[in-house]
Simulated scan of single mutants.
Amino acid sequence: MSPLELRFRLRELRERAGLSQEALAEKAGTSQVTVWRLESGTSRRIDFDLLDRLARALGVRSEELGAFFERTRG
């Protein structure tokens, strides 16, 4: 998954969950600015621990996380 695909996937999951960027950030233990940077594609660094927390906050099953991160690493 490219950074562009990641940004759209993250936004899609967040909107599907009915969460604002601020609400997702709070659930994941990060800042709204961090979520915004990931969704806008301005973040150059992907922190896999943060992506794990975001995915869990969005209700993504743990089995899906491995494939999600493997695609993101490439």
Rank of each mutant, 00 (worst) to 15 (best):
R71K: 07
V33R: 11
W36D: 12
R7K: 06
D47F: 09
L6C: 11
L6F: 10
Q32G: 09
T34Y: 09
R9H: 15
L13H: 06
G59S: 04
E39N: 04
Q32D: 08
A55F: 01
G29I: 07
V33H: 09
E5S: 10
E12V: 05
F69M: 12
A17V: 02
M1H: 03
D49Y: 12
R14E: 01
T34F: 07
P3C: 05
L54Q: 02
G66Y: 07
S43W: 04
L13R: 04
A23W: 00
R14Q: 01
L24F: 02
G18M: 03
M1C: 05
V60F: 06
G59H: 03
R44A: 15
R53C: 13
E64G: 13
E26N: 13
R37K: 12
E64A: 14
A17D: 05
A57N: 00
R37Y: 08
E12P: 02
A28K: 01
S20F: 00
F68H: 01
L19G: 00
R44Q: 13
R11Y: 01
R7Y: 03
Q32Y: 02
E12F: 06
R61G: 11
S62D: 15
R37A: 14
S43L: 10
F48M: 15
F8K: 11
G66N: 07
L50R: 11
L50H: 11
L19I: 05
R9D: 15
G59V: 03
E39H: 02
R37M: 11
G59F: 03
E22C: 08
A23H: 04
L24R: 01
A25C: 08
R61I: 12
P3L: 05
A57W: 00
A67K: 07
S40W: 02
R56S: 14
L10V: 04
E63Y: 13
R9P: 12
R37N: 12
L58Y: 01
R45W: 06
A57R: 00
L4C: 09
L38I: 12
F8V: 15
R71P: 00
G66D: 10
E22Y: 06
R61P: 11
Q21K: 09
R73D: 10
S20C: 00
